[in-house]
């Protein structure tokens, strides 16, 4: 039996994440997670359907998320990107969410929800 993937909506609900855009895409299942602030690292190692946890909030993260077919990006420490980045993500269909937790805490809680990150 394959376990059902947790969706972004379920994760957002369980961890009180604020949805900044892409609310219509939250039913997408999360395949795994990747936590990193280095874009070369994410480009090389994140996988399709991963949730990406980062403190980077500039607009280039959207291009990285599109290229890697990331399920969604969660910003940590309560950080929020500017309107231009949110608009770009909305246009590209990438959900952006934000958490008041640190990257360590958020990654741990996502792991507890069953989102793992084996490469």
């Amino acid at each position: 039996m394959t376990s059902k993937k947790i969706t972004l909506a379920q994760a957002a609900d369980a961890l009180h994440l604020k949805v900044l855009c892409g609310s219509e895409k939250l039913t997408r299942g999360i395949g795994g997670g990747y936590t990193s602030d280095l874009l070369s690292d994410v480009i090389a190692h994140a996988k399709k359907d991963d949730i990406w946890i980062t403190l980077q909030i500039h607009s280039n993260i959207v291009a990285v998320a599109v290229l890697k077919e990331i399920a969604g990006v969660i910003f940590v420490n309560g950080r929020e990107p500017d309107d231009e980045t949110v608009k770009k993500a909305q246009d590209e269909g990438i959900p952006l969410l934000t958490s008041t937790l640190t990257a360590y805490e958020l990654s741990g809680k996502l792991y507890e929800l069953g989102i793992h990150g084996q490469r």
Binding site: S59, N60, V66, E84
Partner: peptide, 10 residues
């Protein structure tokens, strides 16, 4: 141009 950066690759 960091705003458009990555668009060609996409």
């Amino acid at each position: 141009d960091f705003i458009k950066a990555g668009e060609s690759s996409c």
